[in-house]
Design a binder for these strands. Structure first.
Lengths: 229, 229
DNA sequence: TCAAAAGTGTTCTAGATACACCCATGT
DNA sequence: ACATGGGTGTATCTAGAACACTTTTGA
C-alpha cells in the first residue's frame, strides 16, 4: 500500500556517469565517447545513462559499462553524486558518478567503434561536457587513495603481467618514479603474486618473468589490513 | 533554450540524509530523530529532507543540518548515494547521504526537543528505518579512514580541549586504547595545537592543560600531506 | 596521606629509503 | 661485442611500539 506523503515534492532526473580507467603499459588513460544526442551532441563526454524505474544506480552503471566495453565483471565503485542545479544545460539532472578500472586488452573494439569511443591520457583530456572534467579529476584522486591500501591496481593489467609493467602502473598512478629494487622487494613480500615459468619478450631481449595475482592470498591480506606500495 | 531530448525518462524523488556524529568526552554518538510523518512515523531515523528545485544536494544537506542543530558552519561531506528500488517503502526515492561532525556543546537543545532528537552510542543504535543503519555504518567507516590523514577529529571537540579528551576521542574512533606518551608525542609533534595557560579541572584534581587547534599550522601541514595518529 | 588523573623519555624494532652492479639475449 | 632492459642485496634512517614512574591537588 503506497502512502502519499511525498507527493508534494518535485522529482528529478537521475543519471549515472562512468569514469573508465585503463592502462596502456606506461600511462593511465580514460575512455571517453562522442556524445550522440543533444545537448552538446558531438562533444567528448563520459559514458552515461539514466537510472531506470526498476534498477538502482549500480545496476544502471553496470549496464552502461557493459554497453560500452562488453565486459561483464568490471571493477567499479561509486565515486560521488553531482547535483548542481545547472550542471546539465538541458534541465535538472543529478548524476551519480562511478569509477571503473579495466584491462584495455579485454575491451571490445567493435563496441569502441560503435560508440566513437577513444582513450585519452589523463594529462591530455579534451574539453568535456558539463562537470565531467571534475568527475574525472575526482576519480583520479580516488584511485590514488585507493591504491595505497587495496590491490585494485591489478584490475588495470592483463591477467599475466611482469614486475616492470606493474611498477610502471604504480609510477603512472603516483606520477612519480619508484626504485626498482624497493618496489620488487615490497610487492613480493606481500605474497599476493605467483611467479610463472613463462617470460614476456616484447619489451626486452632478456625477457621478464610473468606473474599472476593470487586472489586467495589477497583475501587473507585484506583481512589483515596490509598496505600496497 | 531548453532541449527536450530527456523527456522520455522517468524522474525520481531525491532526498538527502545526514549522519551527525558527536563526542561526549568518551564515546562517539550519532544524532537520530523520531520520524514525524508516514511511512514509518514514530520510528528512529536519520534527519533528512528532499532536494528542492533550486538547490543542489549539498545545500539541501546544509539546510537540514541547520534545521536540526542550529549550527551554521558544520563539517560535512558527501558519503554515498543509496538508490535501491525499494529502499523507501513509500515509493522510489534515492538518497544522497552526508556525514557531519559536530561539537555537542554547540548543539541547540531547543531544537533537539522540537525534533524529538536523541544521541545514541554507535554501539547501541536503535532499529532504524529503511537503509539508515547501513548509512551510519558506512559513515563510521569513513570517519575512521578520514581521521588517519586529516584533522577532522577536532570538529567533534569544543574549541578548548585537553590532551586526554583528544586521546579519548581517537580511542573512541579507533575503538582501541592508545598509549598516552606516544599519543602526546605524536600529536604535539604535528605542531597544530596551541597550549593555553589555562587548565580544565572537572575531570581530575591535578587539572589538564587546555589546547586550541591552530588552523594556520594545519593548512601548512595539509599541503605537506602529514598523517594524523 | 592518599586516591586519581596528568605529565613526561628512552630503548627497541620494523619498515622505508638510498644506492650500483651483473645477467640474459637479439642484433 | 654491445646495447637494452631485467634482476638482485646491503647499509642507513626514521617512525612507531613498548614500557613506568613522578607530579599535582582536592578530599
Amino acid at each position: 500500500m503506497k502512502v502519499t506523503s511525498y507527493q508534494k515534492y518535485r522529482k528529478i532526473l537521475v543519471a549515472v556517469d562512468c569514469i573508465i580507467f585503463g592502462f596502456d603499459g606506461s600511462q593511465v588513460q580514460a575512455l571517453l565517447i562522442k556524445r550522440r544526442f543533444e545537448p552538446e551532441k558531438g562533444k567528448w563526454s563520459l559514458m552515461g545513462g539514466f537510472v531506470g524505474e526498476k534498477e538502482n544506480a549500480e545496476e544502471a552503471a553496470t549496464r552502461v559499462l557493459r554497453q560500452l566495453t562488453g565486459i561483464k565483471n568490471i571493477y567499479m565503485e561509486q565515486l560521488a553524486t553531482f547535483s548542481d542545479v545547472n550542471r546539465d544545460s538541458a534541465g535538472r539532472v543529478i548524476s551519480i558518478a562511478y569509477f571503473a578500472l579495466i584491462n584495455i586488452e579485454d575491451y571490445d573494439h567493435k563496441l569502441q567503434r560503435e560508440h566513437e569511443a577513444k582513450w585519452f591520457l589523463l594529462s591530455r583530456l579534451p574539453p568535456l561536457i558539463f562537470d565531467h572534467k571534475e568527475m574525472v579529476m575526482k576519480a583520479k584522486e580516488r584511485l590514488r587513495e585507493k591504491v595505497v591500501a587495496h590491490p585494485v591496481g591489478f584490475e588495470l593489467l592483463p591477467a599475466k603481467f611482469t614486475l616492470p609493467q606493474l611498477q610502471s602502473l604504480y609510477e603512472a598512478i603516483y606520477n612519480a618514479p619508484l626504485d626498482k629494487r624497493n618496489f620488487t622487494k615490497k610487492i613480493l613480500s606481500l605474497g599476493v603474486l605467483k611467479k610463472l615459468d613463462e617470460k614476456e619478450r616484447q619489451s626486452s631481449r632478456k625477457g621478464a618473468f610473468l606473474y599472476v595475482f593470487d586472489s586467495r592470498k589477497d583475501q587473507k591480506m585484506q583481512a589483515d589490513g596490509v598496505k600496497f606500495i
